[in-house]
């Protein structure tokens, strides 16, 4: 989705699952933009871009793989594109299951897969308008 993920979206996602009463546990991961300091300059925002067609395909594959691996009821993934300022949310992963262990494990697994496999690129924009490219650790 374009820009930061608004907190209201997260609240609404939770509300949307209240009718699914077989669910006993949700697990949520939220990635937030950190104000790292790079050579004395502070990160103000990250500009995200992606190889969108491939990213969609990989998101789909990862989600399908997660459903085969874990006994989940639901899984939702949202990633920002464009500029996201420090303190704002850029990744929202939401898994639901009958019990907590599966929801938590599936959520962690999805986050790691997303970071490793989805072709998303991040430009860290510094306070003096220069930038450097982010690399996942």
């Amino acid at each position: 989705m374009n820009g930061a993920i608004p907190p209201e979206k997260i609240a609404n996602s939770i509300a949307n699952h209240q009718s699914k009463t077989s669910i006993g546990a949700h697990s949520i991961f939220l990635g937030q933009i950190r104000a790292d300091e790079i050579e004395g300059k502070t990160v103000q925002a990250i500009g995200y871009s992606a190889y969108e067609e491939m990213a969609e395909k990989v998101f789909h594959e990862i989600r399908e793989a997660a459903f085969s691996k874990f006994d989940m009821t639901c899984a939702h993934i949202y990633h920002s594109l464009g500029t996201v300022k420090t303190g704002e949310i850029c990744l929202f992963v939401f898994t639901s299951s009958a019990h907590r262990k599966i929801a938590i494990e599936a959520c962690n697994w999805l986050v790691e897969e997303i970071k490793a496999k989805v072709p998303v690129f991040g430009k860290e924009i510094l306070e003096d308008e220069t930038h450097q490219w982010k690399v996942n650790k």
Binding site: Y48, V120, F121, G122, W133, K134, N136
Partner: peptide, 10 residues
């Protein structure tokens, strides 16, 4: 053919 630098999602 896509040239992809290191991924930085999340």
């Amino acid at each position: 053919i896509a040239f992809l630098p290191p991924f930085a999602g999340g």
